[in-house]
Simulated scan of single mutants.
Amino acid sequence: MDNGTTMHLAVSLFPGTADPTPGAEPEFDRLARFVQKAEAAGLDMVIFADSAPASGGDAANRQMPFEATTLLAALATVTSRIGLVAAASTVAHQPYNLARRFASLDIISHGRTGWNATMTQKPREAANFSRQEGFSSDDFRRRTEEYIGIVQGLWQGWDADALKFDKSGGRFHDPEKMHLLDHKGEFFSVRGPLNVARSPQDTPVLVLSGLSEADMEIAVRTADVILLDDGPTEGAKARYDDLKHRVAACGRDPGAVKLLMSVSLATDATAKPTVADSMEKGFRSKSCDGFNILLPAQLSALADFVDLVLPELRRRGLFRESYRGATLRSHLGLAGGGDQ
């Protein structure tokens, strides 16, 4: 794990990336160029939202134009280092299929994948998946916790050296190194295991967001990264200390969970260095382990951050000069990075 002397930086793309201009650059090409620029800048990861289907009006123009995990698979082929994190709904997907999908993505990307799971129930989403009435808040929380446990259990169903692929000996795997999940819970029943090998970085990174106070106990037990809303430095410091204490109380190393503060940058380019000061203050005061920068998927917005803010952060010794490894876990300084 890292020693916390430099901050971690992620970029989250706003919904509303569609460009309806006739003759505009194809959406995937524009997103690919965005992620490639973020990779050239050495950012830890890019996080892609996934929206519930639009219900009419202008809603379609406020959504990510692709299903997020499909987009991730394509972006993995045009990048080589940056972490790629996709939101995927616990309502729209069964846990076995979602676990299998992210395990496959992690192999395709050589260990650079993460799943952004939200604890917030999205309006209208359940109605598209045979749940017209949705879930009560308490049911949704318990269901999501069970869901996350299943996914993480399936990811750990194969030991690192379990798959032999021994054609001459007729052995696909070592039975002693395969672990059935055999889960029977309140909402799901899943036997396992996955038919996908263990991840190059041990397991994909779990990023949790949309957390209420009641959700934090789930987060400190399960998450690798927690995305937190921005707030006053004094309150943020107390929140950071409390969450790290809760992580330790669960028997985990406090460094095993990275707390990133989500911030929107000012649009005025002259204000971008006021930005570096604010980020430095928050990081040095131990209010967070880094930042999740909220941006529209436009190269100009990313360029402002990369060209004006990032050099200042590096000059102050707050952000690393280059990638230290090849996997997302290695970027984040998490155990199991596979190349540390």
Results as ranks from 00 to 15, higher is better:
residue 123 P to R: 13
residue 145 E to S: 10
residue 160 A to V: 12
residue 136 S to Y: 05
residue 135 F to C: 07
residue 157 G to W: 06
residue 158 W to V: 07
residue 149 G to F: 01
residue 146 E to S: 01
residue 117 A to L: 12
residue 158 W to K: 09
residue 150 I to T: 11
residue 129 F to Q: 03
residue 144 T to W: 12
residue 113 T to M: 08
residue 162 A to W: 05
residue 150 I to Y: 12
residue 141 R to A: 14
residue 108 I to L: 15
residue 108 I to C: 05
residue 160 A to H: 12
residue 123 P to N: 06
residue 135 F to L: 13
residue 132 Q to W: 13
residue 133 E to T: 10
residue 166 D to R: 03
residue 118 T to C: 02
residue 110 H to M: 01
residue 123 P to A: 13
residue 116 N to H: 13
residue 109 S to C: 11
residue 156 Q to S: 13
residue 125 E to P: 02
residue 163 L to V: 15
residue 126 A to Y: 10
residue 118 T to A: 02
residue 126 A to K: 12
residue 158 W to A: 10
residue 167 K to P: 00
residue 121 Q to T: 06
residue 139 D to W: 01
residue 166 D to T: 07
residue 145 E to I: 13
residue 147 Y to L: 10
residue 136 S to M: 07
residue 141 R to F: 09
residue 149 G to W: 00
residue 111 G to Q: 07
residue 111 G to P: 07
residue 139 D to N: 10
residue 127 A to M: 03
residue 151 V to P: 08
residue 167 K to C: 03
residue 112 R to G: 00
residue 110 H to N: 11
residue 128 N to I: 07
residue 120 T to P: 05
residue 131 R to N: 15
residue 159 D to I: 07
residue 153 G to V: 00
residue 125 E to M: 09
residue 151 V to R: 08
residue 128 N to H: 15
residue 139 D to S: 04
residue 135 F to W: 14
residue 113 T to C: 15
residue 161 D to I: 00
residue 121 Q to E: 15
residue 135 F to G: 08
residue 153 G to W: 03
residue 143 R to G: 03
residue 110 H to T: 07
residue 124 R to E: 14
residue 142 R to H: 12
residue 137 S to N: 09
residue 118 T to K: 06
residue 164 K to S: 08
residue 166 D to S: 08
residue 158 W to I: 08
residue 117 A to V: 14
residue 137 S to M: 01
residue 164 K to E: 09
residue 157 G to S: 14
residue 137 S to E: 14
residue 165 F to P: 00
residue 127 A to Y: 02
residue 151 V to D: 06
residue 167 K to W: 09
residue 148 I to L: 15
residue 146 E to H: 06
residue 155 W to F: 03
residue 113 T to L: 05
residue 118 T to S: 15
residue 110 H to F: 01
residue 110 H to I: 00
residue 154 L to I: 11
residue 137 S to D: 11
residue 125 E to S: 08
residue 124 R to A: 14
residue 145 E to N: 13
residue 157 G to H: 04
residue 167 K to R: 15
residue 148 I to P: 00
residue 111 G to Y: 06
residue 123 P to V: 13
residue 114 G to C: 04
residue 162 A to K: 06
residue 111 G to L: 08
residue 132 Q to E: 15
residue 121 Q to G: 08
residue 165 F to S: 11
residue 159 D to C: 02
residue 166 D to V: 07
residue 130 S to T: 09
residue 112 R to H: 05
residue 154 L to H: 07
residue 162 A to M: 04
residue 122 K to Y: 11
residue 166 D to W: 06
residue 126 A to Q: 02
residue 161 D to P: 00
residue 138 D to W: 07
residue 164 K to H: 04
residue 158 W to Q: 10
residue 141 R to I: 01
residue 113 T to P: 05
residue 132 Q to I: 13
residue 131 R to P: 00
residue 151 V to H: 11
residue 127 A to I: 05
residue 147 Y to D: 06
residue 124 R to P: 01
residue 128 N to E: 10
residue 156 Q to P: 02
residue 124 R to M: 13
